[in-house]
């Protein structure tokens, strides 16, 4: 549509884009315009919110069931992976040696210093979110045949992060330790995550 035409110069066409009239009439109109314009802007803002909020987790998603994990069948040295909120949770029955190793590390050597005792509720169980804190891959180390990295915990194959037997980051690009989800022991042999 007519790329090169400049605004025409008909007498009616000047004074249209906000130059405003002068005198008391003009001020009154400008004030009215300002009020009406602000009102309309508030309205548009209010319309945007329901759309944005509709993308937040819905009520049924928020109410998602917590996950019960029976522990009795997890032998020492073994680990299971369970699904919680669409993500893997690692539940590991650590050996005495592994616990010893986790406790012995001086905090100064850690990138994200946290004592082992702050990461567990009851020995020998370690429960961590199986999501690498670098970019969200699932680290290896759950199966006996998996590579567990240089520190005997988990090893993320995506970008080479090594986690120790407490799920703490020891080497590689990940910035922090594997997260510990909210969980509670519902009995001696069962935990409920979430």
């Amino acid at each position: 549509m007519a790329e090169t035409l400049a605004p025409s110069s008909s007498p009616n066409t000047g004074n249209t884009l906000g130059e405003g009239d002068h005198g008391p009439e003009g001020t009154k109109r400008d004030f009215l315009k300002l009020v009406a314009g602000s009102f309309a802007a508030v309205g548009v803002g209010a319309i945007v919110w329901p759309f944005i909020h509709s993308m937040n987790p819905a009520k049924d998603v928020l109410a998602l069931a917590s996950t019960d994990v029976p522990l009795s069948h997890i032998a020492e040295g073994q680990a299971v992976t369970v699904m919680w909120r669409g993500k893997p949770v690692f539940v590991r029955h650590r050996t005495a040696a592994e616990i010893q190793e986790a406790k012995a590390v001086p905090l100064g050597e850690l990138r994200d210093p946290q004592p082992d005792s702050a990461r567990i509720q009851r020995e020998p169980w370690l429960v961590v979110l199986g999501v690498c804190t670098h970019l969200g891959c699932v680290p290896l180390g759950q199966k006996p045949t998996d590579a567990r990295g240089d520190f005997g915990g988990w090893f993320c194959p995506c970008h080479g992060s090594h986690y120790d037997t407490s799920g703490r980051i020891r080497r590689g690009p990940a910035p922090s330790n594997l997260a510990v989800p909210d969980y509670a022991f519902t009995s001696d042999t069962q935990i409920r995550i979430g």
Binding site: E25, K28, R29, L32, K33, V35, A36, F39, A40, G43, A46
Partner: peptide, 17 residues
């Protein structure tokens, strides 16, 4: 309620313009 007020304001601006 909001729209009625906005309508009144818009109509006032329209009258002025």
């Amino acid at each position: 309620l909001f729209l009625v007020i906005l309508g009144g304001l818009t109509y006032a601006v329209k009258r002025k313009v």
